[in-house]
Computed example of a mutant assay.
Amino acid sequence: MTKSLWRELFIPLFVIFAVSIILHWWLGWDGFFINLSTEVIGIVVTIGYVDYILKKYEKKEWQIPHSRVIKRLQYFVNRSINDCLYSLQYSYDFSEWVKTIRDFSGFSQDDFSTKFHSELLSVVKIKLKKDAVVTISNFDNEKWEHFVKHIESIHDSAEAFLLSFGDKLTPEQYTLVLDIQDTAESVLIMRETIYKNILSPLKVAAETPENIEIVKVMTRHYDEDIVSRLSTLTEMLEKLFKIAA
């Protein structure tokens, strides 16, 4: 029950109830005041019950169906899978996807999307194992900006999803989305602190072959670290994908 309901209705009724009891003790009046106090109790109970029912109904009316939340979760996962691929400079080769698309042509839109993004998830995992380190090692500033844009997209989408639907998720779902956001943020922090503020200046300052080699080793280490974090992120997306499918 709201504070305003207590203040504007229940407190005055309680005062009437208390006064009625006192007057009954003092005056009697054939039980008039005791009957009045009983009526007040009935009114309070009735109003409280009606208030409870109305609030329960209102909450039910505004409650988002679980299926709608799962659908939004699917959108988040699918978009994040695409962002992972695009961050690594992946481009669709239609000739490679013709058979897959043909095989899925009889599916409904939702089933097609699920099957298609399942295939994309496999592509991400293969790329991360196969040549992601080499891809990142060849990034210039423009490609780094492209990479950051897509990782930021994953981070921001996770944050927006949690703000909108966090209270509708199971603990497992909530934790996975939060872990995905945290992992994306850790990658962004690495890019900002390690690459821009440390490795880039070192590359410029490294004049001797020995120092150049040290910078190369350091860069390789952090390239592998980023790929490892992206692999972890992909594993979490895969878990969430299976939950939402």
Rank of each mutant, 00 (worst) to 15 (best):
E61P: 00
S113H: 08
I70C: 04
I154H: 13
L188R: 14
W29F: 08
R68A: 05
E207N: 13
E235F: 10
N211I: 03
S4Q: 07
R7F: 05
Q63I: 03
V50I: 11
Y49G: 05
W62V: 02
N82A: 15
L169C: 05
Y49N: 13
D110V: 09
S200K: 12
H117P: 00
Q74H: 07
F147G: 03
L27R: 03
M1Y: 11
L54C: 06
T232Y: 02
G166Q: 10
K115D: 02
A132Q: 12
K56L: 02
E172S: 14
L13P: 07
E58Y: 11
S200L: 10
T193D: 09
G28M: 03
K203Y: 06
I70K: 07
N82C: 12
F17K: 13
S87I: 09
G48H: 13
S87G: 14
E224N: 07
E96K: 11
I53E: 06
K127Q: 06
V44P: 00
T193G: 02
V187D: 03
L85A: 10
F76Q: 14
N211K: 15
V148W: 00
I81L: 05
S231E: 12
T38I: 04
E238S: 13
L121K: 13
T170P: 00
S200C: 02
I47S: 02
L85N: 06
Y174R: 15
I126F: 03
R229V: 00
I189R: 11
V15A: 12
I180S: 04
L13A: 09
K59P: 00
E235N: 15
T135D: 08
S80W: 08
K71G: 02
R102M: 01
F147K: 04
I151E: 01
Y86F: 14
G31T: 11
K143D: 01
I126Y: 08
